[in-house]
Amino acid sequence: MSDTPKLRIRDLKKSFGAKVVLNGIDLDIGAGESVVVIGGSGTGKSVLLKCIIGLMEPDSGTIEIDGENVVGLPRSEREAYMRKFGMLFQGGALFDSLPVWENVAFGLMASKQVDRADARKVAIDKLAQVGLSEDVAALSPSELSGGMQKRVSLARAIATDPEIIFFDEPTTGLDPIMADVINDLIVKCTRELGATGLSITHDMASARKIADRMAMLYQGKIIWAGPVSEIDSSGNDYVDQFIHGRAEGPIQMAVRRG
């Protein structure tokens, strides 16, 4: 890990009305590192991700990208940082009005002024990287199975060669085999790009495979963070209960979504 982390989060807070979702998050992610934030449903994982990307404005705290604080920046400057990001959405979030290749090439055509013919070539290249052939390029996203949609969405996330890639529950809704395929692709693609990765998930198999380091989010705070090799000997009751998926233990499940 270099001296300035790629992403440094300090005392990040976010509430919706009276409900405190993030209650002082501290997290460092080094360049080229893959960190997975684990935690149950409704613990604020998605909110954390949305705050970092800039889809939500946190109430207080700082988010530094390459040492620069981005919280409170005007929207136009914030957008410049978004160009460094790629994001794999939970449901894929593919644009169903566009064919697959235009989905993949969307970021290229939007930000780098690449013309359509070149963008199409890049898109087919990226599709090949996630194991999809050229035939898929002209299809509409709705014609694809869930796993294929996830692959296309991954290709879209890596299409602009981002420096940081975010993965929102990458394996949710996939069968175990397809989930493993996606995990392998995530590891392969982030390595090839040398990108920094931040994932949120509650799928422990996926987390173990993707992560260099894990952090556990509970009641708006990071209650444990450490290398994957130490997750089984964390000595933290909350972490133990979560990774073993026990119903009995100190964790109370949230009712409302966060």
């Binding site: 949305k50 990307i53 800039g54 889809l55 957008e79 978004m82 160009r83 990001f85 790629g86 994001m87 959405f89 939970q90 449901g91 979030a93 593919l94 644009f95 169903d96 969307f106 970021g107 939007a110 930000s111 879209r156 602009t160």
Partner: peptide, 16 residues
């Protein structure tokens, strides 16, 4: 539908 399937968020992350 684009809103609830996060397509609008996706647009934003793709600098649009």
């Amino acid at each position: 539908t684009m809103r609830v399937t996060e397509q609008i968020d996706a647009l934003t992350t793709l600098s649009t």
